Computed example of a mutant assay.
Amino acid sequence: MTAAAAAADDVRDPSLPGRLLAAERDALLPLLRSLPDADFALPTAACPGWTVRDVLAHCSAALARVVESRFEKGVFSPESNERDIAERAEWTNARILDELEHGMTEAGAVLAGRADGAWDGIAFGEWVHAGDVRDCLGEPGAYTGEGRPYALTLLSRVTRDRGRPRLQADLDDVDDPLHLGVPSGTRTPARFIGDTATLVRLYTGRAVDGVSYELTGAEAGELNLYG
């Protein structure tokens, strides 16, 4: 990649988080509102100890913080996340979904207004958690779907911001190669061959057991954004 191409690749689109959240809202909320209450109590494999309801409460609380610009010290730590879930323990499922929908509608403008883009990754995290819920429910579209182009662009940026190794992803379900991470003059870029969902699972520490893919030049643990 040339220096000019790398610079262009690094240009932030401030509207991107909002577009991802809106696409996920329109796809996910109708599904969630159609669920029986029993499904909200299902345990999720991606977030051990959390039910579907817990994941959704975490997501709605995180977006509420964004909308209200509450970015105090320790926000999004495991302890903070558990407190957010506990604070919503007496809420109805419908109330949690209402807060989630409001956040997915309003948070994009707040994120766009932060010139440093420091919180853009929140939108990617919300999209991943939506995939966790779909995966738990056995619904199609986990870690892919309508928001995939926006999510992959954000993933590319987040992997650079967090200094992950340079990697070229040749995705079965995307035409052009995706470049992630930070180039190094001393290390040959890694390469991934597989589908989008598997790539996202690797970068977010989700299980890939039994999934067919190729990863050369890097270990899976080096990619995990949350490890």
Rank of each mutant, 00 (worst) to 15 (best):
T186Q: 09
M104A: 06
A118F: 12
Q168C: 15
A61G: 14
G210Y: 04
L152M: 15
A3Q: 12
D132G: 03
L155Y: 07
A23S: 08
L35V: 10
R83L: 10
S184P: 04
I85M: 08
E106C: 01
G138C: 08
T216N: 13
L137P: 06
V110E: 11
L178S: 00
W119A: 12
S77H: 00
A7M: 13
D161V: 12
R95G: 03
D10Q: 15
L32P: 04
G210S: 08
A3P: 00
E90D: 14
A62R: 07
Y150G: 01
P36A: 05
L223Y: 08
L152P: 09
P189T: 10
R19Y: 00
T198H: 11
H58P: 07
E68L: 06
T159P: 08
F76P: 00
A107M: 10
D37W: 02
V208W: 09
A86H: 04
A27L: 09
G74I: 07
V66I: 10
A89V: 12
A41N: 03
S80V: 00
N81R: 06
A109R: 09
C136W: 00
D54C: 12
Q168V: 15
T92A: 12
S69C: 04
A61Y: 06
R83M: 08
A3N: 07
P48F: 05
W127I: 02
D13R: 12
G18E: 00
D209E: 15
P78V: 07
H58C: 08
D10S: 15
W50I: 05
S80T: 02
R148K: 15
C136Q: 09
L31Q: 15
A8S: 11
T44D: 02
A115N: 04
L178I: 02
W119L: 14
T216K: 13
S77N: 01
A6P: 02
R114V: 11
G181W: 03
T51E: 03
R206P: 01
A6R: 12
R88A: 13
A8T: 04
Y150E: 13
F40I: 05
P183T: 05
S69H: 03
A197D: 14
V11I: 14
E126H: 10
V211E: 14
G141M: 03
M1F: 05
L21R: 00
P48N: 03
S77C: 00
P149W: 01
G185F: 10
D195L: 01
D13V: 08
T198Q: 12
V128A: 11
A27K: 07
V211D: 12
I193E: 15
F40L: 08
L56V: 07
V158P: 00
A115M: 07
Q168E: 15
Y203F: 14
P165I: 14
L20R: 00
H58M: 10
A89Y: 05
R114N: 07
G113D: 07
A197Q: 14
G205M: 08
A3W: 03
A169H: 09
R162Q: 14
D135N: 13
F124I: 12
L28R: 01
P48L: 05
